[in-house]
Design a protein around this nucleic acid. Sequence first.
DNA 1: CATGGACAACTGTGATCACATTTACCGCTC
DNA 2: GAGCGGTAAATGTGATCACAGTTGTCCATG
Lengths: 222, 222
Amino acid sequence: MSDILTRLPSVQPDAPVQAAHDRVYRGLRQQIMHGELPPGHALTLRGIGKSFGVSMTPAREAVRRLSAEGALTMSGSGRVTTPELSNDRIEELAQIRALLEPELGSRALRRAHLALIDRMDAINEANARAVNRQDPISYIRTNLEFHRTLYLRAQSPAILGLLETVWLQLGPTMRELYTRLRRTTPPPHHRHILEALRAGDDAALRLAIRTDVTQGLKHLQG
Amino acid sequence: MSDILTRLPSVQPDAPVQAAHDRVYRGLRQQIMHGELPPGHALTLRGIGKSFGVSMTPAREAVRRLSAEGALTMSGSGRVTTPELSNDRIEELAQIRALLEPELGSRALRRAHLALIDRMDAINEANARAVNRQDPISYIRTNLEFHRTLYLRAQSPAILGLLETVWLQLGPTMRELYTRLRRTTPPPHHRHILEALRAGDDAALRLAIRTDVTQGLKHLQG
DNA sequence: CATGGACAACTGTGATCACATTTACCGCTC
DNA sequence: GAGCGGTAAATGTGATCACAGTTGTCCATG
């Protein structure tokens, strides 16, 4: 069972023996997904190894795994950087989110209960505070947590896993966006999502999620 | 034997020397996606290395990359096998295909021309011959090639890349299916796809693709 | 014949090293 | 000051090795 969970690092009930390459993988993955690294940021195997206290070998495996997921880009000579996405690619990734996330939301709706909605509400408030604080990293983290909290209820690990690789690819770009244009208002459609959840309205939920996703990423293009 | 070949990579100036780990990755990936390996098939790093004429290091990187894409499963002790999918996971992967593939088809439709449709027709006939020959591997290969030929025209590498990881995960399972129940008729909806393409009918194309995908995978559950 | 345990072979992990290539830096020339 | 060349540092790659954990086998015991 833990073999499947390795693809969903957000869920780890048991922590038997964290292999070195797995520690490195998780650490880098979080940095990238939460937007702690700008696009085009260069990484080196020896540097990664040093910062995690391991040799090149586990660093290489973590990098290989992350680049397989699109979280890192490898140049022809093997140099590794965070991805700099073209407009076309951003549009594609937004389209994937727009296809997968309403489906996950719909699946979660049938299993959603009040405690879940309350938890999402709390995360959403933390998200609003991050906006006021002008803190891009906290903003991205709480925003993703808001969505993931809902989608976990869908009990669809394969779809969620695929979606998380999309989030990964967008991490550095989202950081750039949210540091460039300093937002002053929290994402407006989160409220619609919560309302649709409370009302148990499937169609409204799908629309709210889709709008939230596409609206948030529309500003990325330029 | 291979020592001499690997020691003279610069003799071929035009051909970019593909790294050893990449050769291994491509080789294994094709075996898995085309259904040459049954579900649960065990692989070892030393065995992979030996069969590709390299050491454990490139084999490990290729395996790491493939398991990151879901093409291989790693047990807690690091043992690596081809995945044995549960019914729930098959249903999820089918759903992902049903969401992504009609979108790719629709995007390709605007760019499709007659030569493309003729090529797909030829591939489809090869597919029918594979059915008559009772050749599961050729069947899977031509079936994927039929779809990929269309989707390549969508000019959407991110979506297609994600879709290919889904195909990868289904490879061994599809092999099992098509060897168990020996089909005698080619996939009926390929004809509908071709007709919709010729007519330029977007809605019909989306429906035909979605039906083809879900029909093909419906038999997998059991 | 079934069961259990000890031993040997096997397997993944991570460190280290040599090597080829790429990148960066510094000084020189025009 | 800008462009350029050459050397040194940095970097990825792949092989090899020691080690620990796992798996499989085979024989003794009941």
